[in-house]
Amino acid sequence: MPSIAKILLRSILKMVNFVMGIVGIAMVLYGLWMARVWQRDIEASSSIDDYDSTAPWFIYTFLSIGITLCLVTCIGHISADSSNGFCLSCYTVIIMVILLLEMAVAADILLNSDWEKDLPEDPTGRFHDFKQFVESNFDVFKWIGLLIILAQGSCILLAMALRALGQNHGSNYDSDDEYPPARLPLINHNLQPPSFVVGDPHFPSKNDAWNTNK
């Protein structure tokens, strides 16, 4: 039966992990809305060839990031529910990789003033609109970014703590198995040799009985 600390860590990990799920769902919905608007602009525009010449990379990137966050959230929920060491390790590595990528992108934006030139041209214009929207609500997005980073860091720490707690519980259980239980299992029933030997009763042969009577 799991301990109270393990149950508490599971619940906290699920709640913190759900933050990334909410962000992923919001990004997927916003990406679908941008794709719908772009498709409507293509149908209403006379220069369809200009739209088809360049892929809407910003919409695809937005959708891909949102779907990735949703998948990571599912992996984290399964890992927290099962408390499996391998699943928790994989989940921790994935969160670390995502966190490193986010830090690399943030460092490039802050240190490189011409970072926009490294990006391909966006035919939809949604990247420019999204940039202006972020700049106009920079304080809100700053706190959202800090919340996401804090949630990811907390997920890493909670997953590591839950994995360590599972290992300690397993080692204690192994040490308790040194003493055989009162009811032995059916397969491994030779943990402790019995003090007496159970065998077929020995009856004297006819010759032994005849010699004794004689």
Rank of each mutant, 00 (worst) to 15 (best):
H202N: 09
D122A: 09
S53M: 11
W210A: 15
P185N: 08
I78H: 09
H128Y: 02
W38P: 00
I156S: 12
F196A: 09
A107T: 13
H77N: 11
D208G: 00
G199S: 14
N211W: 08
V198H: 07
P120I: 10
L165N: 15
Y30G: 02
M20Y: 03
V134C: 12
D129S: 10
Y51S: 10
W115K: 01
G145M: 04
T54Q: 12
T73W: 12
I65P: 00
L119G: 04
A80L: 05
L162D: 05
P185Q: 06
H77W: 15
H169G: 13
K142D: 06
S79H: 03
P180D: 08
R183K: 11
L8I: 11
L88V: 05
S89W: 15
M96D: 05
G76V: 03
T68E: 01
N211I: 12
E135W: 08
M34L: 14
I98Y: 12
F141D: 06
V105W: 09
Q152S: 14
A159M: 04
S82F: 04
A106Y: 07
Y179E: 14
D174F: 04
S175R: 09
P194W: 09
W33V: 05
T212D: 10
C74S: 13
L88T: 02
M1E: 09
P2V: 06
H128N: 05
T212G: 00
A161M: 12
P180I: 00
I59Q: 03
R40H: 11
P56I: 05
D129Q: 13
A159V: 04
S3C: 04
I187N: 10
Q192T: 14
S154K: 02
N188R: 12
H202C: 05
T73L: 02
L147V: 13
W57T: 06
Y179M: 09
A26M: 07
V72D: 00
I95L: 15
A5F: 06
L29C: 10
I67G: 04
A35G: 13
A35P: 00
D174T: 08
V37F: 01
L146R: 11
L29I: 13
L111K: 07
D118Y: 12
I75M: 15
D200Y: 07
Q152W: 13
A106V: 10
E178G: 03
I78D: 03
W210G: 01
M34W: 03
L165V: 01
P2W: 08
N172A: 13
G31M: 02
K142V: 03
L71G: 08
K6F: 07
F130G: 00
